[in-house]
Design a protein around this nucleic acid. Structure first.
Ligand code: FES
Ligand code: FES
Lengths: 145, 145
DNA sequence: ATAATAATTGACAGTTTTAGTCGGGTATGT
DNA sequence: ACATACCCGACTAAAACTGTCAATTATTAT
């Protein structure tokens, strides 16, 4: 039951991007240096984040990445979805309309309920909240405990 | 973010064990046949379940496994813990007293909060509830939705 | 005692997933 | 033209997962 480092990196990179964004594009090289994540690996992640409508890219010199939407409208679960990390704990209920639970699935409700809790929690946190928290000014949110 | 099949098997096996238990020990061979899980793999799991004080073993002919405690006192998270599947989504906060969050961990609260939700949910479900549900008589519990 | 039963244990191998690299391409501003 | 920076797919090494095998020990029935 581990969140892959891919997902962890994606969230960290997004917070960092938002933190150092002043309206002009932020390069992956900067994020790479600040977060100690391999540049080529970051590129891989940002291709997916762009496709997931989390960021948009600006090519050429002076280019880089910008948020595709206001930070307030970007939820953590969307970031993780974008880099193709499933948030569902069992493979049988991946994307299809519920899993084909014939009869022998006594544990179905356990995994289904768990998936729901995970999704609910991660969708309740926005990139803006994380960024404010990183700045040392906790917003109105209550992330844990 | 996947629950390993090891953990899934362990929970299924425990429900099955409790379901067909009439006071005398249940053999792994029976569980193996009913749940279509390799006997040798089950053996591996039950060694750990015994160490985790979930079941107790009776050796020799007529032997098998029994619950170490009443089903009402066995929670799903304990079963998963026993087979050594971590319920914490990030490795840095594995068992030690919180992780060494120096300064650059802007996502700490996300994973910590997530771990808490997962633990809370799985500890709220007992083996007894699952067994009753499997019998088609939902207890007083509300597992999901 | 002896044989049959069933748990116990450690080592091992095949497969899949993860994490990350590499090499080349494409668009754009100066 | 040229440097910058994104874009993309193939590739690989390492780890984890899933499961098997062989050998042993403890207990009970005969
Ligand atoms: S088929 Fe997915 S839990 Fe039953
Ligand atoms: S060290 Fe674990 S989240 Fe910071």
């Amino acid at each position: 039951m581990r969140m892959s480092t891919k997902a962890q990196y994606a969230v960290r990179a997004m917070v960092n991007l938002n933190l150092y964004s002043d309206g002009s594009p932020v390069t992956l090289r900067d994020i790479s240096l600040r977060e100690s994540i391999s540049l080529t690996y970051l590129e891989q992640l940002f291709v997916k984040l762009r496709r997931g409508d989390i960021v948009k890219s600006v090519r050429g010199p002076g280019g880089g990445y910008l948020l595709a939407r206001p930070a307030k409208e970007i939820q953590v679960d969307e970031i993780i979805d974008s880099v193709e990390e499933s948030l569902v704990p069992v493979s049988c209920m991946d994307q299809k309309r519920g899993c084909v639970c014939d009869d022998r699935c006594v544990t179905h409700n356990v995994w289904h309920g768990l998936a729901e809790r995970i999704r609910d929690f991660l969708s309740s946190i926005t990139l803006e909240e994380l960024t404010l928290e990183a700045k040392g000014m906790p917003g109105k949110s209550k992330t844990n405990s």
